[in-house]
Amino acid sequence: MIAHALQAMRAIVGREVAKFSRQTGRLVSALVRPLLWLAVFAAGFRNVFGLAIAEPYDTYIPYDLYIAPGLIGMVLLFNGMQSSLAMVYDREMGLMRLLLTAPLPRPWILFCKLTATAVLSLAQAGAFVVIAALLGTSLPVLGPQTPHVLLAAVSAALMLGALGLLLSVHIRQLENFAGTMNFVIFPMYFMSTALYPLWKLEESGAGWVWQIARFNPFTHAVEWMRYAMYGKDPGLSPWIVLGTLALCFFVASWGYDPQRGFGALTKRGGGPA
């Protein structure tokens, strides 16, 4: 049974990796967005945003170095949401019906899809880190802190992939994905510490944005990676990320179960059996 489950994981992850390897434009588009922010936005605001010495930094840092972990989070976030689009497409084409009728527990099949999403997310994030270093923004990812950085990045990729999995339960048509971009991705990214520290939000008087950013799981994913790179204690961020991962995956698994779930999938011809 275990061998069968691992074989299914290899097959699903291998299929997604093979499909991604044939989509060169997908990798390019995934990297262009954060690299534009790094090369243009960070350069333009380098002398506008003054960053005081604050945890996890021990000295003043340039703005591009501050937003780089947030841009890694952007790569993970957009690929996690892209996975929800792929899930909706597979459901409409009937592929999810075939996949979910496999003689394996449904949560395991979904976890295999989630693992495939995380693998692709981490590959794209790794490519971004390399190109950013070539552009002059070198992140401290190598050293004694590397295992902690990898743990933070993997956990963030899984959490955002689980969020995409949860959204795919509710997105019934491909046309609705644009609404997801407007109401999920952009608020989650901009109301976080990806672009500016929490203390700066509070200091500027943006109280409601500060409160949202404090409870935004994406904030804690970015902060966990940021603190891990400098070998500092990330506080409660790992627990919030892992808790959000478990909650999103549990609710998504429940939603994909036609016997107990939301029932939205079984009302469409392309939903799981």
Rank of each mutant, 00 (worst) to 15 (best):
His4Gln: 14
Ala11Tyr: 06
Ile12Gly: 07
Val13Ile: 15
Ala18Val: 04
Phe20Gly: 04
Thr24Pro: 12
Leu31Pro: 15
Val32Ala: 09
Pro34Asp: 15
Leu35Ser: 08
Leu36Gln: 09
Trp37Gln: 11
Val40Arg: 08
Val40Lys: 12
Gly44Lys: 15
Phe45Thr: 09
Arg46Ser: 15
Gly50Phe: 07
Ala52Asp: 15
Glu55Gln: 11
Tyr63Pro: 13
Asp64Tyr: 10
Tyr66Glu: 06
Pro69Gly: 09
Gly70Ser: 10
Leu71Ala: 04
Leu71Lys: 04
Leu76Ser: 13
Gly80Phe: 02
Ser83Gln: 09
Met87Phe: 06
Leu95Pro: 14
Thr117Val: 07
Val119Thr: 15
Ala125Phe: 00
Ile131Tyr: 01
Ala133Tyr: 03
Pro144His: 03
Gln145Leu: 02
Thr146Ala: 05
Pro147Gln: 04
Val149Met: 03
Ala153Arg: 10
Val154Pro: 10
Leu165Ile: 00
Leu165Cys: 11
Leu165Ser: 13
Ser168Ile: 00
Asn176Met: 06
Met181Asp: 09
Val184Thr: 11
Phe190Gln: 09
Trp199Gly: 13
Glu202Ser: 03
Ser204Pro: 09
Gly207Asn: 10
Val209Ile: 10
Gln211Phe: 10
Ala213Gln: 04
Asn216His: 04
Pro217Asp: 05
Ala228Asp: 08
Pro234Asp: 04
Gly235Lys: 10
Leu236His: 09
Ser237Cys: 06
Gly243Asn: 00
Ala246Glu: 05
Ala246His: 11
Leu247Gly: 10
Phe249Met: 00
Phe249Val: 00
Phe250Tyr: 03
Val251Trp: 01
Ser253Met: 00
Trp254Lys: 02
Asp257His: 06
Gly261Ser: 03
Gly263Lys: 02
Pro272Lys: 02
Ala273Pro: 14
Ala273Asn: 12
